[in-house]
Simulated scan of single mutants.
Amino acid sequence: MISTICNRKISKMANESDRYPLHKAVFENDLKSLSRLLRKHNVTAKDNHGNTALHLAVMLGRKECVQLLLKHDAPVKVKNGLGWTVLAEAVSYGNRPTISSLVRKFRQQSREQMEERRPNLVEALNRINDFYMELKWDFQSWVPLVSRILPSDICKIYKCGANIRLDTTLVDFSDMRWERGDISFIFNGNAAPNQSLTVLDNVQKVYQNVKYEVS
């Protein structure tokens, strides 16, 4: 009877290994097999707990496996069955080099996803009628009279074709101090991605193109 139960467990474990070969390679810390398997298996595959191979590598502290999986563009934002992303798992384990690598990959993947969605955004903007609107907002506090001294602003938004301009007068706000100015954010949907967002300082008469930087 005991022998039968053991055989069933071994058989189940073998089936699990066959179903999740990337996870098995990570568990065994077998870089050579992992590198070979990544050529033909989906790096986004999840096990029964919703963990990707990258989840498992982070949880087991397999640093070299983590780097190899990241080179094959393993997703960082995906969540497991408990709702934890790979980055959240890394933070909980406190491995700084791994966290830094994941943050860099997270930025890269987020940028790539935004660029993939850009054509849909531009198309949607072109379908919407041009408009102008004002958006008023202010800070509130439960402390009596404090709300009266907190800043407020009226953001002016202009939309023309695939272009959007947002004007604001609140430049900075921190430690109960704020700085007023005249700043415009301009999104040009027809420009190249690295030239589509421009910040204008209408007081200083200067502008800056906002670009992605890999750090």
Results as ranks from 00 to 15, higher is better:
residue 66 V to G: 08
residue 67 Q to T: 11
residue 71 K to I: 10
residue 72 H to I: 04
residue 73 D to H: 14
residue 73 D to Q: 11
residue 74 A to S: 15
residue 75 P to F: 07
residue 75 P to R: 07
residue 75 P to G: 08
residue 76 V to D: 12
residue 81 G to R: 11
residue 83 G to P: 09
residue 84 W to H: 14
residue 84 W to T: 06
residue 85 T to C: 06
residue 85 T to L: 02
residue 87 L to R: 07
residue 89 E to D: 15
residue 90 A to C: 06
residue 95 N to P: 01
residue 97 P to F: 03
residue 102 L to Q: 00
residue 102 L to C: 06
residue 103 V to A: 04
residue 103 V to D: 06
residue 103 V to F: 10
residue 103 V to Y: 10
residue 109 Q to I: 00
residue 111 R to F: 08
residue 113 Q to D: 09
residue 113 Q to C: 12
residue 114 M to F: 15
residue 116 E to K: 08
residue 119 P to W: 03
residue 120 N to G: 14
residue 122 V to I: 12
residue 123 E to P: 01
residue 123 E to Q: 11
residue 124 A to G: 01
residue 128 I to T: 11
residue 129 N to E: 09
residue 135 L to H: 04
residue 137 W to A: 00
residue 140 Q to M: 10
residue 144 P to I: 04
residue 144 P to D: 02
residue 146 V to P: 01
residue 146 V to N: 04
residue 147 S to Q: 06
residue 148 R to L: 14
residue 148 R to H: 15
residue 151 P to V: 03
residue 158 Y to R: 09
residue 159 K to W: 03
residue 161 G to M: 05
residue 163 N to S: 13
residue 163 N to R: 14
residue 167 D to Q: 02
residue 169 T to A: 06
residue 169 T to M: 04
residue 174 S to A: 14
residue 174 S to G: 01
residue 175 D to I: 05
residue 177 R to W: 05
residue 179 E to I: 14
residue 182 D to W: 09
residue 183 I to P: 01
residue 183 I to V: 11
residue 184 S to D: 00
residue 184 S to Q: 02
residue 187 F to K: 00
residue 190 N to V: 04
residue 190 N to H: 11
residue 192 A to V: 14
residue 192 A to M: 12
residue 195 Q to G: 11
residue 197 L to N: 03
residue 198 T to A: 00
residue 202 N to P: 05
residue 203 V to H: 07
residue 203 V to K: 09
residue 204 Q to Y: 06
